[in-house]
Design a protein around this nucleic acid. Structure first.
Length: 202
DNA sequence: CATGGGATTGACT
DNA sequence: GTCAATCCCATGC
């Protein structure tokens, strides 16, 4: 896998977010293709960086091309790619993946291994429960809070360029999910028709 | 120092 | 459709 260089992320977050659709996320023995992202920028109130530089947002304002991982609702770890130059708080939330490798391990981490007995007809439909949400994919890949701030080019979590069938994905924009402010911005990007995109589908 | 609110998910009515 | 689980940290006293 060819990891994306830091300058890929040192651009406007609204360019990076759709460009990440079709790229590959890899962590240990598990990997998947990004099929859904959302952009966040310090200029709008849904972004954590809106409040300015704090202990929580330090990573967001730091070097582009690093992972911003935080805990949501006390339960889930959410994975973001930090964008734009140092000093600008912006990131792309990785919301869903198409599972690529290590699906057995993903099933085990997600607590779905017991259902594999449905096998023949069911394995394909089970796969779409593995990474079809921002909290689900970090659980499936085993990404934890201590990976906050690590490099997406050379760290434990790596993002690679588009390849093969994902060279020219069709991308559709929609409204971001699960936020209460700046809901009018259509800063959510999904691979058209992919079954791993979380609900509601645009 | 106490409080409240999430960039969610899964279970239940 | 509703609702609780559960932790980090920003904010306010």
């Amino acid at each position: 896998m060819t990891a994306l260089p830091a300058d890929f992320y040192a651009r406007p977050v609204l360019e990076v977010a759709p460009d990440l659709i079709g790229c590959t996320v890899e962590h240990g023995e598990t990997a998947g293709v990004i099929v859904e992202t959302e952009a966040y920028h310090e200029s709008e109130p849904a972004c954590h960086a809106y409040v300015g530089l704090t202990a929580r947002t330090e990573t967001l304002f730091g070097e582009p091309g690093r992972a911003y991982v935080y805990r949501s609702y006390g339960i889930h770890a959410l994975l973001n790619a930090v964008c734009e130059p140092v000093g600008v708080g912006a990131a792309v939330l990785i919301r869903a993946l198409a599972p690529l490798t290590g699906t057995e391990l993903m099933r085990a981490r997600r607590g779905l291994d017991g259902l594999a007995g449905h096998a023949a007809a069911g394995s394909g439909s089970l796969d779409r429960e593995l990474c079809s949400g921002p909290g689900k994919l970090t659980q499936a890949l085993g990404i934890e809070l201590d990976e906050n701030g690590t490099s997406l080019a050379s760290g434990p979590v790596r993002i690679g360029a588009r390849a093969g069938e994902w060279r020219e994905p069709q991308v559709v924009a929609g409204s971001r999910i699960g936020i209460s402010r700046a809901v009018e911005l259509r800063w959510r990007f999904c691979a058209t028709g992919d079954p791993n995109v979380s609900r509601p589908r645009p």
